[in-house]
Nucleic acid binder design. Sequence first.
DNA 1: CTTATTAATCGTAATATTGCAATGTATTAA
DNA 2: TTAATACATTGCAATATTACGATTAATAAG
Lengths: 113, 113
Amino acid sequence: MGVTKSDLFSATQNELAAVAKVLAHPARVAILQYLLKSNTCINGHLVDELGLAQATISQHLKELKNSGIIQGTIEGVSVSYCINPVRWEEIKGIFNTLFESYPTPNPNCGPIC
Amino acid sequence: MGVTKSDLFSATQNELAAVAKVLAHPARVAILQYLLKSNTCINGHLVDELGLAQATISQHLKELKNSGIIQGTIEGVSVSYCINPVRWEEIKGIFNTLFESYPTPNPNCGPIC
DNA sequence: CTTATTAATCGTAATATTGCAATGTATTAA
DNA sequence: TTAATACATTGCAATATTACGATTAATAAG
């Protein structure tokens, strides 16, 4: 139905999925990389940088902002966005927790394992 | 339009977004955690574990398989899925590369930065 | 006040995702 | 062969996402 049954899963699982969803678009990845590189940014710069319409980028920025990954302050007539370092570390930790639980090879899984 | 303009972005950006998309559903996160924990798994076990229909889980497993994160071998009448350690490390690296480029606080970004 | 400039929001079209019942397929058991 | 078991696939309905033109809101410049 296009609707996720989030009540079936743990808070951690839903949180990880939610954050992953924010990263699940190349435009948002590109925006983050641009912010990481320049460590400051204004919406208009991204329109030139990415080749998407202003409305589209504003929408992506909104999603990044909603997830807490970035934050913006009004800078006169424009808005300056940047990474939220605290949230960044938090998200980094969420993914690390998953990736650190590395599996040991399992003989029960056949020859290709 | 619901269609991502992937030609606007780099291969790395698209790859990261694609992998994130696979992780962007709590059911798939739950499946991975189950695999990481038990280090072996059979589709039917997940139906009991997750509370989703068999067809739905099969679909999620397919996506995980397509991305290379898991692989399955036919085990008689059932299928045994497990993590692909090589791909796991690869994906871990992709995310680490992003998260390691940590931003230093920027005075241009206002007081809340 | 009027006009630019910058970005957020609205409305809408195209497409993608999620979930499941029903069905198909392959293997095993009897 | 027949029946049972375990998944995969198909087809569909409900909902979500992506993209953009048009509009709006807010500030700055003249």
